[in-house]
Design a protein around this nucleic acid. Sequence first.
DNA 1: AATCGTATGATTGTCAACAATCCGAGGGGT
DNA 2: ACCCCTCGGATTGTTGACAATCATACGATT
Lengths: 235, 235
Amino acid sequence: MSQLTRVGRESTSSIIARQLRAAIRDGEFSPGDQLGEAELAARFDVSRGTLREALQRLVEEGLLNGERHRGLFVRELSAVDVQDVYVTRNAIEQAAARLILAGDRTAVADELATLHERMLDAVRRGDQRAVGAADVAFHELLVARSGSRRLMRMSRTLLIETRMCITALQDAYELPEELAAEHGALVGALRNGNEALVLGLIDAHMDDAVRRLTPGRGLHEPLPPLDPEPRVLGR
Amino acid sequence: MSQLTRVGRESTSSIIARQLRAAIRDGEFSPGDQLGEAELAARFDVSRGTLREALQRLVEEGLLNGERHRGLFVRELSAVDVQDVYVTRNAIEQAAARLILAGDRTAVADELATLHERMLDAVRRGDQRAVGAADVAFHELLVARSGSRRLMRMSRTLLIETRMCITALQDAYELPEELAAEHGALVGALRNGNEALVLGLIDAHMDDAVRRLTPGRGLHEPLPPLDPEPRVLGR
DNA sequence: AATCGTATGATTGTCAACAATCCGAGGGGT
DNA sequence: ACCCCTCGGATTGTTGACAATCATACGATT
């Protein structure tokens, strides 16, 4: 009787929030776009009040920023934001990896290897979109298998921001082969239980991404003092 | 002209959310308490709609959990949650420390030393409440001076949850002298730029807290597989 | 011509009322 | 005595309407 899960449906604002998140991740909305309440409410067939609850969630998450009496906009990412996203992901995923190494690392390595195969397939097919999806899935699973609810919640937002960075800077290619190779190395190191190597690989993975997306800027540089309105990418 | 900051006021739901956060942090609401919409709306003198926007923010943050048609409740923390909070704080604060070490570490060390002095004063006065406040302020500043907006946002929630853990388990004393000593050591290591020592001290700091709050459980144990409704502290 | 002031349309912020659902009390049946 | 059903009160979920504010276009003034 104890494994019967509570039924109660998910709240409407939570559902809408998830759909909005997916739309932002998939580039249906671009950074800087305004999210008109009336239009979105009609699209999801809910009232503006309900929609606003969902939007406020994304504001709290940092995916939207709002200016009073002007509206809510998809956040625009600066070069500093790119570094910040990867610095934070580095922290989250290293912590996740440490937890995995303390648990059943081989089981997790097996699961990750499956996703790694999927990425290799996508690379062979030259399907850039599928490579991106496999990349997200890989890192999502890595964090999920840590067992930490908080790391998962944070990672969810960060992976969306990662896609936003990559979409905003299409010219900076993702180099799928290199990406896949790094994932493969990480799976191996995890399976072998080599903590120092695992942490180093994650660090290098993030550092590579930052250097590819924002040339001349590295993962380990000091962040500039906080500026309320930093310059935006690609302008 | 470029240092003129945009004026636009903060949104109402953001203000209400902050007040609610402070109320939860200060124990005005206890874990498990239901937050009645009508009562709160009257107390803040806003409509229920506006209040609900603020509440949904806290749900997204993980401070509240809601069951449809039943209400919103202050999240109750299990022993696993305690470990999770500190594991995540460990990740965040280590990353923050690394950023600080890459920047102007002496300036930050000076600022932290000031807060450390304030904590020592509180310890000497035997003012438990002030010790707790100084503790939060210390860690808040550590993360703020990393320059990372994302680490800051995550840390804000985590520090509230930290206070919730400590308040829920009053019997597990905080040992103010020990706390202050650990902060002092951290300031010293930061000033000297000894990265390995800094990271080790943060790790030990978090591990101490977990062991004090949930005897028999350490920071580096694997987390159990995710369970939708874990047992709650102090029952 | 350039700038300032004004009107207008659109969008957001706020609210109070209605509908749906849940919880507990009370009555009836076994 | 116990269980089930039903009803009433209370709370949440949702909606549409109203007020406040902003952006734009247009005309007046210097």
